[in-house]
Amino acid sequence: MYNIMTKKEYEKYAEKIAPKSNIVRNTARAFVVGGLICVVGQIITNFLKSKGYDMDDTSNLTALIMILIGIIFTGLNVYDELGRFAGAGSIVPITGFANSIVSPAMEFKSEGFIMGVGAKMFVIAGPVLVYGISASVVIGIIYYLLNF
């Protein structure tokens, strides 16, 4: 075989040739878009509070509305464009969680409504729920043991 490098050396060599992500630009975009999405959440929160909703209802309704926004933007085929620009700025907010539920569900609609939409809906969101809920149970048990 025509080869002058070990795998390790080749990996380093390929790494050097590959163009790098523009981290400064990407991070700036993520900061601005992520920040703005959170400001939208804050506007909704402040509005609900001013209408006299209590803490719990406000937080639930804000989450619900943000998710709805993420879903609608995904359905209208614009959330992927936003993601292309903003990266983590639109992945990390809860709107991105909504996007991760709707996008595979839409994509796999061609495989039917049970094993397509119903099952594929959770390919990305499923792990989030698994690890989020499991973490809360573990932390809850530790909290219980420490305090009771």
Binding site: T27, G34, C38, G41, V92, P93
Partner: peptide, 8 residues
């Protein structure tokens, strides 16, 4: 919010 997303 911006900082959390930037970390991501």
């Amino acid at each position: 919010g911006g900082i959390i997303c930037a970390i991501g």
